Computed example of a mutant assay.
Amino acid sequence: MPKQTLVFESPVQLSVQNSMLKIAYKDDPDNVTLRAIEDIAIILIDNHSASLTTPLIGKLAEQNVAVVFCNERHMPSSMLMNLDANTLQEKYFRLQLDAPLPLKKQMWKNVVEAKIKNQALHLKSLGKKTRQTPEIRHWSP
């Protein structure tokens, strides 16, 4: 089963209960959920009123769960992850570093093109005029 990515955009209290992630919504105290920590890959926290307990951080590290914190612009600003046993993450970093330059350039091109297309779609959803096909100039870092 693929591991889950949990995104928290509302005020929550995250803690451990019976070796599981306990999610208590601050706005609705009766709304409490338990999740198996071993089924989680990433937790993304995008609310400055969210809180985590220290025992939970330890359990998440044991299970190689990355915790990403977003800033006030909803952009990732920091990350907690297990440095000792996270060999899978190290493998991905190594593959990215060792990728041949033409592949890196192609991937960068794909990222830039996707961002431009998404910006055009967003403008369209806001009722703004856009060109049908955004002009894409090829640039490589």
Rank of each mutant, 00 (worst) to 15 (best):
E135I: 11
N18Y: 09
L44A: 15
Y25D: 02
R35F: 04
Q89T: 07
P141F: 08
N71M: 05
P141E: 11
L60C: 02
E113K: 15
Q17A: 12
H48D: 10
L103V: 09
M75G: 04
F93G: 06
K26A: 02
P76L: 07
S15G: 09
R73I: 05
L21I: 02
G127F: 00
L44I: 15
M79C: 13
V12W: 09
S19A: 14
L34W: 08
I37T: 05
S78Y: 09
I40V: 05
R137T: 04
D84G: 14
T133E: 15
P100N: 09
M107Q: 14
L95D: 13
Q89F: 14
W139T: 09
D27H: 04
H138V: 10
Y25P: 04
E135V: 12
P2E: 13
Q17F: 11
L44P: 06
E62W: 01
V111H: 15
L88Q: 13
S10D: 07
V7R: 11
M81W: 01
Y25H: 10
P2R: 11
R137Y: 08
Y92M: 13
N118P: 03
I42R: 05
M75C: 11
Y25F: 13
T53S: 14
N31P: 01
K128A: 09
R35A: 02
A99V: 01
V112K: 15
Q132I: 03
Q63E: 14
N31R: 14
Q132T: 09
Q13G: 09
S78T: 11
L123A: 11
A41G: 14
D28G: 00
E62T: 10
V65Q: 03
R73K: 15
L14D: 07
F93Y: 12
A24R: 13
P76M: 06
T5A: 06
C70V: 00
A36T: 07
E135R: 14
G58S: 13
L123T: 02
I37W: 06
D46A: 09
A85L: 09
V65H: 04
E62R: 07
E9K: 15
S49H: 13
L21P: 02
S15Q: 03
I45Y: 03
H122W: 11
N64W: 00
L103I: 05
R94L: 12
N86T: 00
D46M: 04
Q4V: 00
S10C: 09
S77I: 12
L123K: 12
D30M: 08
L97N: 08
K3H: 04
Q89R: 12
I37D: 08
K129H: 11
